[in-house]
Amino acid sequence: MKLNKIHHVAIICSDYQKSKDFYVNILGLKIISETYREERKSYKLNLLIGKEEEIELFSFPNPPKRPSYPEARGLRHLAFEVDDIEIIVKELNSKEIDTEPIRKDEITGKRFTFFNDPDNLPIELYEK
């Protein structure tokens, strides 16, 4: 078996416009396409990260909350690689996005931190 890369990560949000604003205007992801599916009462927004990775942002009527704390089984968080974590943290904080203190990974020695999207999905910044 040969898996080439992660193609996309899918996220279901509770407030489509708020999440779209967060991922596009705060995190700076580029819109590839946006579709409204009337039969599902659902938006699907394809966003570009870097050169080819994607996030699919979905809206559905009344999606259930995702348990985060205490941590539940399943996907733990979404992580973005960054060149300079301090610059990104300052930019997020200037946009009123709270971040955890920058920590150092005891295994790799790399710096990282976490913040949340509008639905409290944990997002990690991991310094290259």
Results as ranks from 00 to 15, higher is better:
Leu125Gln: 08
Leu27Gln: 04
Leu48Trp: 00
Asn4Phe: 05
Ser42Thr: 07
Ser33Val: 02
Leu75Ile: 15
Val82Ile: 10
Pro101Tyr: 03
Phe112Gln: 00
Asp119Lys: 08
Glu54Trp: 06
Pro63Arg: 02
Leu3Cys: 10
Glu39Val: 09
Glu56Val: 00
Leu78Lys: 03
Glu56Ser: 03
Thr113His: 06
Leu45Trp: 06
Tyr126Thr: 03
Gly109Trp: 11
Ser14Thr: 13
Lys90Val: 00
Lys104Glu: 15
Leu27Ala: 06
Gln17Ile: 05
Pro118Asn: 02
Phe115Gln: 01
Leu48Ser: 06
Pro63Leu: 00
Pro118Trp: 00
Arg37Met: 15
Asn46Leu: 14
Glu127Arg: 02
Asn25Ile: 02
Asn116Gln: 13
Asn4Met: 09
Ala72Asn: 05
Asn93Cys: 09
Arg103Tyr: 01
Glu127Leu: 09
Pro63Ser: 04
Phe58Ala: 04
Phe58Asp: 00
Val82Phe: 08
Ala72Arg: 13
Pro61Thr: 08
Lys110Asp: 14
Val24Asn: 08
Pro118Lys: 01
Leu3Ile: 15
Ile88Pro: 04
Asp84Ser: 12
Pro67Arg: 13
Leu75Phe: 15
Lys95Trp: 07
Tyr43Trp: 12
Gln17Ser: 13
Glu86Thr: 12
Lys110Cys: 11
Lys95Cys: 06
Leu3Asp: 00
Arg37Ser: 09
Gly50Val: 13
Asn116Glu: 14
Asp105Pro: 11
His8Asn: 09
His8Val: 12
Asp105Arg: 09
Asn93Met: 14
Val24His: 06
Tyr16Gly: 02
Gln17Lys: 15
Asp15Leu: 05
Arg40Ile: 10
Ala10Asp: 11
